[in-house]
């Protein structure tokens, strides 16, 4: 297999005495769509936040394209500009319009010209069907619309990997579909994605690899066809049966 884009090596994270992640090893290769599932408190979101360096790991390291991402602001910034993140709570900039949200970082981080940044913003906003709303402020949009804008905003950076931290958990049931559809579209473009989600059907249908996390460990890491139909780990089985029953 080719070299991993992101390689997580023996990553551990504790909050005080509480160990949230225990020696996580995951290699992410180009084009993979990895869904991370597991019950609340199993460390999924913390893992994702560690991957984006929003949370500092207690030990272990993260390699990007074969090079360690050290805890130096300049290196972190450069790494983050290539690894986008979509949040549960959208985190659109409230003081800016949709268009400004999508142009700010391409202008200030990638130093694109205004015209280039504008073209990119429009292109990606069209992909998520939000182009007509360029003049709206985040507070004037619905949850689903906000999340679609947030996805477009991340895409504007042309990331090599896009992380999703429970992108549909804060949405009304009827809005979940529109965001999942956008993500399904993205999955067909070959973009590498790591998705923390509670949407089991989505994980089963879209991911190329599903990781089940339990109490800070990677309990199972397999293609969805195996993990969902024939889970090896009893914890996975228990989790899935609870989910499918509920």
């Amino acid at each position: 297999m080719s070299e991993a884009i992101i390689s997580i090596q023996e990553l551990s994270k504790s909050f005080g005495d509480h160990e949230v992640l225990r020696k996580i090893d995951i290699d992410v290769h180009a084009g993979e769509i990895i869904c991370i599932v597991g019950s609340s408190g199993s460390g999924k979101s913390t893992l994702l936040r560690c991957i984006n360096k929003l949370e500092r790991q207690s030990s272990g390291k993260i390699m990007f394209c074969g090079k360690e991402v050290r805890d130096v602001q300049r290196e972190i910034n450069e790494y983050r500009s290539k690894v986008g993140m979509v949040f549960q709570s959208f985190n659109l900039f409230n003081n800016m319009t949709v268009l400004q949200n999508c142009m700010l970082c391409t202008r200030k981080v990638l130093h694109l010209s205004k015209a280039e940044a504008f073209d990119r913003a429009i292109t990606h906003l069209k992909e998520v069907d939000m182009a007509p709303y360029i003049h709206a402020k985040p507070s004037q949009l619905s949850g689903g619309q906000k999340q679609r804008v947030a996805i477009a905003r991340s895409l504007c950076m042309n990331p090599q990997v896009l992380l999703f931290d429970e992108p549909t958990s804060a949405l009304d049931p009827e809005m979940v579909g529109e965001v999942l559809n956008v993500m399904k579209e993205l999955a067909t473009t070959g973009l590498t994605m790591i998705i923390v989600t509670h949407e089991m059907a989505f994980a089963r249908d879209v991911s190329t690899r599903t990781i089940f996390m339990d109490r800070g460990y990677v309990a199972e890491d397999a293609p969805p066809s195996e993990l969902f139909t024939n889970p090896k780990n009893p914890r996975t089985r228990e989790f899935l049966s609870r989910y499918l029953a509920g």
Binding site: L54, R80, K82, M85, K108, V109, M157
Partner: peptide, 9 residues
């Protein structure tokens, strides 16, 4: 975090 996650200082 929204800005940091895109590499903004």
């Amino acid at each position: 975090e929204g800005a940091w996650a895109m590499g903004m200082s």
